[in-house]
Design a protein around this nucleic acid. Structure first.
Length: 571
DNA sequence: CCACCTTTGAAGACC
DNA sequence: GGTCTTCAAAGGTGG
């Protein structure tokens, strides 16, 4: 828990997270190149895709928030967003950001009421809402960003002022918000969050507990008594459904939680609209928007066994008891999962693909196409998430969830190994969608790579940080189509939280398995970062995501040759 | 109705 | 210590 304590905010405000913001030039560069590259893609796209709404966005994927539009509910959401923006604006004017210790930190995370770890059928995907206070100098066209946020900030951060940002300027990376640990740093609860510690009902200020590092996860029943939740008032009462909606509708009881434009857009981009605390749902009885407030016991696992227990006349008491005793605490999301969660909506919106499997393939490719900074952010985010999780559920182990899912597909290996050599035979043809655009490089089609170049070559060249995504991406398709030996676990990125050095140059040796050596290694070269240890020390902070980013970069360098060998599925 | 698919990463289990 | 297995999200699909 290094960063959890560590002054809380310190850690979060640490270099790693700021790096992506420090380099304005790079940002702009990226943006511009993205725009240009995407224009080209748009042309292709527009000619191939009928989904006009996609290209209409001019695919400034880097800047526009690409929330799915056609959805009616967004209308109200947009309104809400504006409301949030306005609210925040007021607060900012009112010293909302008055000298928070971490004022320099660009991100704010809204402790979004929900607990992602307590499995709940009704739990919306976005159990957490991260707020990012975008700095004007980043990707915001300046003026607009600066207009009404002149909140006092440390001198060194004078130009980095949280601003009410127009949704359209939200960077896709906005979801890479950090945890707001620092926001609840012991002793000095940020003024802007102070309202959060007020009892919504009584208005009585609550004293944040020092350990309130994880305001985002309602504690399990057992843990509730152990660790005062910063949003304890949000913690579900037993049997209380999280989605109970007060007649009054959304009242936005937490001014402090008001989202500014970027926040809300972040939410929208990171999560599908329905995930956003919607005025019409996700409200606690107190009027608190809390989509995730749910008794952990309500649903402890996806399995249907208990699905009927509470609903049916069946004596749910004993079962319930059991559930309460052992709520299903989900695993913390890893970096990729976080990324997926965020990007899925976008991909879905831009593609006509709907199957998650296909989407995930695309996401997987895009994941590799991310710049190291971008990935690093997710790694960092995931790392913090794990830490939070561990703090919330000290006794929890991943093993606890073993057996929760009846998955046993591992045994599918024995079947028809020979045909897999050529075509994995995607169950579903995504062909029609394929040409739609880069993002929709149909995972099932090998030629999807043509269009798949999120990051233009120039990007890779221009920015050292850009991991030749293009190359890797284009090399990917085959690996996607092939269904390699079940799982090729390439030790690639050192775990952010772990000793990064452990895996350095172990990647090649790791995949020593003869049967998978070709595929694994080539695939690793293609899609996985290669440990890179010859970077400037500044970038090689063991725990720093940039260390991995560096690896990734190196990996990019390694991908200079088109590797078609990936096609071979080791079997 | 529910497992499967598909992705990467993390962690536990196993050897 | 290395490898393997399971689970995390998600939503269409097929049995």
């Amino acid at each position: 828990m290094p960063q959890l304590n560590g002054g809380g905010g310190d850690d979060l405000g640490a270099n790693d997270e700021l790096i992506s913001f420090k380099d304005e030039g790079e940002q702009e560069e990226k943006i511009s190149e993205n725009v240009s590259s995407e224009r080209d893609l748009d042309e292709v796209k527009s000619s191939l895709v009928n989904e006009s709404e996609n290209n209409s966005s001019s695919s400034d994927s880097e800047q526009t928030d690409w929330r799915p539009r056609p959805r009616p509910e967004l209308e109200s959401y947009e309104k809400q967003r504006e409301y949030f923006a306005e609210a925040l604006r007021r607060q900012q004017d009112g010293g909302f950001f008055k000298g928070p210790p971490y004022a320099g930190y660009p991100f704010l995370m809204i402790p979004d009421i929900t607990n992602p770890y307590l499995s709940n059928g009704s739990l919306s995907p976005s159990t957490r809402t991260y707020l990012q206070m975008k700095w004007p100098l980043l990707d915001v066209p300046g003026t607009a960003a600066l207009k009404d946020s002149r909140s006092p900030t440390p001198g060194h951060l004078s130009n980095k002022v949280p601003v009410v940002q127009h949704p359209h300027h939200v960077h896709p990376l906005t979801p890479l918000i950090t945890y707001s640990n620092e926001h609840f740093s012991p002793g000095t609860p940020p003024s802007h969050l102070s309202p959060e510690i007020l009892d919504p009902k009584t208005g009585i200020p609550r004293t944040p507990h020092p350990s309130e590092l994880s305001p985002y996860y309602p504690l399990s029943p057992g843990a509730v008594g152990q660790i005062p939740h910063p949003l304890g008032w949000l913690v579900p009462q037993h049997g209380q459904h999280m989605y109970s909606i007060p007649p009054g509708g959304f009242r936005h009881p937490y001014p402090a939680l008001a989202m500014n434009a970027s926040m809300s857009s972040l939410v929208s981009s990171r999560f599908s609209p329905h995930m956003v605390p919607h005025p019409s749902h996700g409200l606690h009885q107190t009027g608190i928007p809390h989509p995730a407030i749910v008794s952990p016991a309500i649903k402890q696992e996806p399995n249907g066994d208990n699905a009927s227990n509470s609903t049916h006349g069946k004596p749910s008491v004993p079962v319930k008891k059991e559930e309460e005793r052992k709520p299903h605490i989900k695993k913390p999301l890893n970096a990729f999962m976080l990324y997926m969660k965020e990007m899925r909506a976008k991909v879905v919106a831009e593609c006509t693909l709907k199957e998650s499997a296909a989407i995930n393939q695309i996401l997987g490719r895009r994941w590799h196409s991310l710049s190291r900074e971008e990935q690093a952010k997710y790694y960092e985010l995931a790392r913090k998430e794990r830490q939070l999780h561990s703090q919330l559920y000290p006794g929890w182990s991943a093993r606890d969830n073993y057996g929760k899912r009846k998955k046993r597909k591992r045994d599918n290996k024995p079947d028809s190994p020979q045909e897999s050599n050529f075509l994995p035979q995607p169950k579903k043809q995504c062909v029609p969608y394929l040409p739609s655009e880069k993002m929709c490089d149909s995972p099932t089609s090998s030629h999807g790579s043509m269009l798949d170049s999120p990051a233009t070559p120039s990007a890779a060249l221009a920015s050292p940080a850009a991991p030749a995504a293009t190359h890797s991406e284009q090399a990917q398709p085959l690996s996607l189509t092939t269904k390699p030996e079940g799982r090729t676990h390439h030790p690639h990125f050192p775990l952010p939280g772990k000793a990064s050095g452990s895996s350095s140059n172990s990647s090649s040796s790791s995949s020593s398995h003869p049967s998978i050596s070709l595929h694994s290694q080539s695939a690793a070269l293609l899609s996985r970062p290669i440990p890179f240890t010859t970077l400037p020390p500044s970038l090689l902070s063991p725990s720093s995501p940039f260390h991995q980013a560096a690896l990734h970069s190196h990996h990019a360098l390694m991908q200079t040759q088109p590797l078609s060998l990936v096609t071979k599925s080791a079997e």
